[in-house]
């Protein structure tokens, strides 16, 4: 069998195919934006939650923990830590760090005020109420 295989045609197909699939992707992104209000728990984005997210970010929590499965895998998943441990445990836990137990993984103490702790907990509560298609498989995350 023989045939033609030209660089010009391969190039056209590359550009055409890329534009095509990028537009298809954008169409799906558009639909996602329309659906998100029913899933992303935006009605509970209070001032506390927003402040809590900023504390989450500026302490680089994602550098050890994961949130909805994304981040580092050095410390427990926190997307469902609110239902797993409850607000009081989370606050007490953060205040008692580091444990100093020899040879064990250590978490720094971030010296958060009571208000900051409450905001962080509010953020973790909000995160736990996002519709994640039933992920994680169980409460241990």
């Amino acid at each position: 069998m023989s045939g033609i295989f030209s660089k010009a045609m391969a190039r056209n197909i590359f550009y055409g195919g890329t534009v095509f699939f990028f537009l298809l992707f954008l169409a799906l992104v558009y639909d996602t934006e329309r659906e998100l209000p029913t899933r992303d728990n935006r009605q509970n984005l209070s001032a506390e939650v927003i402040a809590g997210k900023k504390i989450w970010e500026t302490r680089n929590c994602i550098g050890c923990h994961s949130l909805l499965g994304e981040g580092a895998y050095f410390a427990p998943e926190l997307g469902n830590v609110y239902p797993r441990r409850g607000p009081e445990f989370i606050k007490a836990w953060m205040q008692s760090q580091p444990t100093g137990a020899p040879g064990r993984r250590q978490m720094p103490n971030f010296h958060l005020s009571d208000e900051e702790l409450d905001n962080l907990v509010a953020f973790l509560k909000y995160s736990s109420e996002i519709n994640t298609a039933n992920w994680p498989p169980n409460i241990e995350g």
Partner: peptide, 17 residues
Amino acid sequence: PPAAQYRLAGDLAIWIF
């Protein structure tokens, strides 16, 4: 190639696509 030979119509690149 000679006309009698089997020939792939269209560019190979499109067939891969």
